[in-house]
Design a protein around this nucleic acid. Structure first.
Length: 110
DNA sequence: AGCATGACTAGGC
DNA sequence: AGCCTAGCCATGC
């Protein structure tokens, strides 16, 4: 079965989705961190794409991904509130500005 | 093939 | 410390 030059299973996007599902409950990861683990430290925007696209087949813990400054990147609004609620449900404190204590909750990647 | 979108980031001022 | 700019990646039209 040659052909199939870029099967989803081997694509960067798929690796990204896989990594996101690997983020442990109660911890968070940054876009850049996921990108780096997926092989491209500069593919943070690709991570965003995957998160926005979502996965119709399996649940994606999208709420565990935040930006490098340790805060929720969604614009203020419903999405923002939902993410904050989901994180707090996992025992992660999020202040009114959407900031999380990375020292305490950042996924070490292992 | 070119332009636009998106929840990003590092670096410069 | 905050704002702006330029890079980077995958997809959709």
């Amino acid at each position: 079965m040659p052909a199939a030059a870029s099967r989803p299973a081997d694509s960067l996007s798929h690796r990204i989705a896989h990594l996101i599902r690997a983020i442990p409950h109660g911890t968070v990861a940054t876009y850049g961190q996921i990108a780096a683990l997926a092989g491209n430290p500069r593919a943070a925007r690709a991570v965003v794409w995957v998160l926005r696209r979502g996965d119709a087949h399996r649940p994606l813990p999208w709420h565990r991904v935040i930006n490098a400054r340790g805060s929720i990147s969604l614009p203020r609004g419903d999405g923002f509130e939902v993410q904050r609620a989901l994180l707090e449900d996992e025992g992660i404190s999020v202040d009114s500005e959407g900031r999380v204590d990375l020292k305490q909750h950042l996924w070490t990647g292992s």
